[in-house]
Design a protein around this nucleic acid. Structure first.
Lengths: 231, 231
DNA sequence: GAGTGGTCTAGACCACGGT
DNA sequence: CCGTGGTCTAGACCACTCC
């Protein structure tokens, strides 16, 4: 038999009923079997639609209890963390980067205290500056686990940023991040060609591969940068 | 026949082969039929695993061309936009909010210029302050479409924030947002009990329902707030 | 215990797009 | 053209959990 409607159409129709308050917030939905009968399709097709609505935070599902319209539909948004090179080139600008400083030794105290690194691990610290059309757009400090990546000490970061190198070495790494607003210190401000105390976004990164911290990164973006998304 | 392994196990095994470079970045994966034969399961099960890997940005799939390990695996992160009340209460603090000012009239110029509102629309502007355990944590300006929501003019925002009210009226609305860093002006700083020019996160919201802008919101968070996520 | 969602199967048809 | 992924089906078994 030819399918009349598919799972996306079913999702849309359910969504319409919720929007129109035919199925108010918190109310139960018919069971998958009942919906399949109504839409004249297999239960698997209804299931696929409902799984998506559940992932979207619009419907709550429990065995035996059934599906309900969520009382407080979640506002979920997907963001993609991109390399600064990608950000710059997507603006149609040319990308360059420059290594400002490099040092090698113990991990910084704060990174030991928060459990990122073990005290005896050898850390390569890179300070770098990143440009779009010659204008500085990002000042970055990276602390890279050289105990885990001995080859990093021979690496030159004048063409590719530390993050690019790390993603080549460890393309499926996990991690966490947080954005804050900070007032620039004198040194960073000078590099970014901004006034001291200018407010900019600071992104902190914690990169993990197989349970071991491979790097900590701090990215101070220039003022024209913002983090956007939709839901 | 009892299933030996499920789609999650298949996803994990494929992931392991990618991590171990058995299937390097950019290399083709076996077809769904071949994988189903190898894993001794139905093609639908393999399909489900591959669909997830594609959503995760780890695998690229095209008809006829087949599946490939992505050359540049994406770093995707899901974030949930939550009400300030939820943020505060999750910290174990008590939530209060206060309306600071209210005015009614034309939309602000910038909101007309960027297409959010039509010039003839009536806008209710609310300035509000939000507290955790009595300490100010968020200063908010909301511009609400009163042409679309005539009932908003009678609404008191001393207990529930404008966003809470909007989400009750329009629980499935869409929208976009962006985070910037700003230096506080004197007035906002005083409300937040911070020094003038302090750097804080500013979140701008554009709320849309059925194609019409129902509100624009600006949220200036206190210094202890950050936006976090993982991938 | 019984009804629900979660998952799997074996088969099928089709649209897309590389060759 | 024809192999691939995208989708649907009818049926099945199971785990969970509410009653």
């Amino acid at each position: 038999m030819a399918p009349i409607i598919g799972y996306q159409e079913i999702r849309t129709r359910i969504l319409e009923r919720i929007r129109s308050k035919q199925w108010p917030l918190g109310s139960p939905l018919p069971s998958e079997v009942a919906l399949a009968a109504e839409f004249q399709c297999a239960r698997a097709t209804v299931n696929r639609a409902l799984v998506i609505l559940a992932e979207e935070g619009i419907v709550d599902r429990k065995r035996k209890a059934g599906s309900r319209v969520s009382r407080f539909p979640k506002k979920l948004s997907k963001i993609e963390l991109r390399l600064i090179r990608t950000e710059v080139e997507q603006r149609g600008q040319s990308y360059q980067c420059k290594q400002l400083a490099r040092s090698f030794g113990e991990p910084p105290i704060w990174a030991v205290e928060d459990g990122s690194f073990a005290p005896q691990e050898q850390i390569l610290h890179i300070e770098s500056l990143h440009f779009g059309d010659g204008k500085p757009v990002l000042h970055q400090r990276s602390w890279i686990n050289a105990t885990h990546f001995p080859q990093v000490v021979d690496q030159c970061f004048d063409r590719a940023a530390p993050c690019e190198w790390l993603l080549q070495e460890c393309p499926l790494c996990n991690g966490s991040y947080w954005f804050e607003a900070v007032a620039l210190d004198a040194s960073t401000a000078e590099h970014l060609e901004l006034e001291e105390r200018t407010a900019v976004l600071l992104m902190s990164l914690h990169l993990i591969c197989d349970g071991v911290t491979i790097a900590r990164v701090q990215k101070a973006y220039s003022t024209d940068f913002s983090l956007t998304g939709s839901f």
